[in-house]
């Protein structure tokens, strides 16, 4: 009896805790949502529900001329469709690249200690530098290669700076996969490469998914390098959000609206990949 009671109590506690945390997450999100539907006069208030609900902030994302003359608005910027597409292309491709290269490197590092203790650590370097100083050298380098304002330059830059996430997260996952599986496979005549793809890859799937999701999110929201390296053609979503500035400062409404739109794709991915976060295989298992 007591056991059952404790169960119920724990269960209730569990739901309450989850509920509280969800609330904590949702409150600022609710603020974003409310801003997206509020007119200028209501951006700096304390209440959530707009008194004058408006779609203007979303309209302005596609037709900014329609916004001129309304309080706060002065800037005309391009519609958001291009930056959205740019972001999608750049982020997807660089994520795939970073995860793939990360996976290969992590495997070698985990099983064979390539490229050596210092080499692996070296990849962390890319995340250790405050980006501000790195910006000017990158600009100089890219402009000499005539790579400014291209999708290509962003893709390889983002891959290069996020590949370390792929490597380290995947190494963590691969480390915990028992070697016996691969040994068995190779004993049965599979080549190392085949083993890699047919045995290790599926087991490491949750690692790929976590690394991929996180790299995607990092790249999707990256601002500084995109700002400096793009002008017109390869402008990404975060750069575009920064353009909504009017005579009275930041246009919080359109920025919130665009942030919402921009979060739809990542959240869809986040929702869809959930079953892949959990693996069919498990750590530490030896047989069966």
């Amino acid at each position: 009896m007591k056991f059952h009671g404790t169960r119920v109590l724990l269960s209730a506690l569990k739901y309450i805790t989850i509920g509280v945390f969800i609330l904590w997450v949702l409150i600022p999100v609710a603020w974003v949502v409310s801003l997206a539907f509020k007119p200028y006069a209501e951006w700096r208030v304390s209440y959530f529900v707009p008194k004058n609900f408006t779609w203007n902030n979303f309209i302005v994302l596609f037709k900014s001329e329609a916004f001129i003359g309304i309080m706060g608005a002065t800037a005309i910027v391009e519609p958001v469709t291009k930056p959205l597409i740019n972001s999608l292309v750049v982020t997807s491709l660089s994520t795939i690249m970073a995860v793939m290269i990360g996976f290969f490197t992590a495997y070698g590092a985990s099983r064979y200690n390539t490229p050596g203790p210092f080499g692996l650590f070296f990849t962390l370097l890319t995340r250790m530098l405050p980006p501000a100083t790195f910006v000017t050298p990158i600009m100089v380098y890219y402009s000499n290669l005539k790579l400014l304002d291209t999708h290509f330059s962003l893709i390889i830059l983002y891959s290069a700076v996020t590949v370390t996430y792929g490597i380290w997260i995947l190494k963590g996952f691969i480390d915990a996969i028992p070697i016996e599986w691969e040994e068995a496979a190779m004993l049965e005549g599979a080549t190392p490469i085949k083993t890699l793809f047919k045995v290790v890859l599926p087991i490491a799937r949750p690692g790929l998914v976590v690394a991929g999701l996180f790299i995607f999110l990092l790249t999707w929201t990256e601002l500084l390098f995109a700002l400096v390296l793009t002008n017109v053609y390869a402008v990404t979503l975060p750069v575009h959000i920064s353009k909504y500035v009017g005579a009275v400062g930041q246009l919080y409404g359109p920025q919130a609206a665009l942030a919402l739109i921009g979060s739809v794709i990542p959240i869809a991915i986040g929702y869809a990949i959930q079953k892949h976060l959990v693996t069919g295989f498990t750590f530490g298992m030896v047989r069966g």
Binding site: V89, S94, T150, H151, F152
Partner: peptide
């Protein structure tokens, strides 16, 4: 595959 991936990105940019 990696090279092709890079190439696709470049092509799109171009």
């Amino acid at each position: 595959t990696t090279v092709v991936g890079i190439g696709i990105g470049y092509a799109i940019g171009y």
